[in-house]
Structure formats: C-alpha cells, structure tokens
C-alpha cells in the first residue's frame, strides 16, 4: 500500500517540474486530457494509501460516499469550463488551485467509488458519458475561439479527443451490458 503512495507522489512531482508542466500546458489536448486526469490519478493513489492507514478519517468526512462524489463532480466540471483552463495559464493562483483541487477530487473519488455501489457508479458514469460528448461537440462546433490562450486548431483537436473518449465509453457500456455478468456478482 505504501507503493501506491510513492507512485502517486512521484507522478505529482513529475507533473510539477516546470519544463514538463509548461510543455503539457502548451497543448490544449494534453493539458485537459492528460495532465488533469493524471492529477486525479495522483489523488486516487494517495487516497488508497490513506484509506488503509487511517480508515476512520473517510468514515468521518465522507460517510456514505455521496458528499465525496458531489465534490468530485463539482471539481471536475469546474475544470471543464472553457474559462478555467485558460486562466490556469494566465493566473498562478488558478494554477496552484488546479494542483490542489484535482488530487483532492481523485482522493475523494477513491473512497466514494467504493461506497456508492453499482447503482451510483453507473449513474456517475453515464453522466460523464453525456458530458464528454457534449464537451466534444462544444469544442468542435464552436465557431468562436473559446479559449484565448489556445488556437482554434487546438480547440478542434481537443474536441475530437473528447469524442474519442465518449466513443470508448459507449463501447465499454455496450460490452458490459451485453456480455454475461452473472459470474462476477
């Protein structure tokens, strides 16, 4: 379990190294679809460690997992606003907030995901499915440049990235509802 803590911290440290950070943020698609998710992974890994070390803590702050998942949804949605990505490049305070809030989201997700059970998981999953599809549509279809720091070209690439993820998510749903699940239960 200590390993996951080390992995998490390591990823975090790598992400924070200025040249790597600046390189990742120079491309919109890497910024949103690689850097941000990795930060969530960081939180997830650390969460796994803390969950084992201090099991009582989560019981206290995230009883049935619902409050945790609400914060997770809020934080991830916040970072999907076209504005925030832009501001992270312009204002250091946004950048710092990004590196704090997203690991926190992953941290909460780890605990909540276990607690909200199959029903909650499917609901959250389907919500993200339609949200990603919509984001793809927004970035592809928007005739105006949504972000000031990124070119229209980058915006389109990101749009396709979102569409690609949505397609994968749909495939995953299809395979999981149409293949036999009875043994796993």
């Amino acid at each position: 379990m200590k390993r996951s803590f080390i992995i998490g911290s390591l990823i975090f440290l790598i992400l924070i190294i200025p040249p790597i950070r600046i390189y990742m943020e120079s491309m919109m698609i890497i910024h949103m679809l690689v850097q941000l998710p990795l930060l969530i992974v960081v939180g997830w890994c650390i969460g796994e460690y803390i969950e084992n070390k201090y099991p009582k803590l989560f019981e206290l702050i995230n009883g049935n997992g619902v409050s945790g998942i609400i914060i997770f949804v809020a934080i991830t949605m916040f970072w999907m606003l076209p504005r925030t990505l832009d501001e992270a490049l312009t204002f250091p305070i946004y950048e710092i907030f990004k590196f704090i809030s997203l690991p926190l989201a992953g941290f909460l997700l780890k605990d909540s995901w276990r607690k909200i059970k199959a029903f909650g998981r499917i609901f959250i999953y389907l919500n993200y499915l339609s949200m990603f599809g919509l984001m793809g549509w927004l970035y592809l279809d928007s005739p105006i440049q949504i972000c000031n720091n990124y070119l229209l070209e980058q915006q389109k690439t990101l749009g396709w990235g979102f569409i690609f993820i949505t397609a994968l998510m749909v495939l995953y749903v299809l395979q999981s509802v149409f293949t036999d699940q009875s043994e796993e239960e």
Partner: peptide, 24 residues
C-alpha cells in the same frame, strides 16, 4: 458539499456571469 460546489462555481464564474476567459 453542495454549498461548497455552489461556491466553487459562483466564484469561478464571477457569479455565473463569465464562463470563458474572454468573458472573464
């Protein structure tokens, strides 16, 4: 957590006004 989420969006969008950096 709902109040917290609300605050995040309220301050993050200047009171539900600005959703893009341009409008901000």
């Amino acid at each position: 957590s709902i109040v917290l989420s609300f605050c995040l969006f309220y301050f993050g969008t200047d009171g539900f006004q600005a959703y893009t950096a341009e409008s901000a």
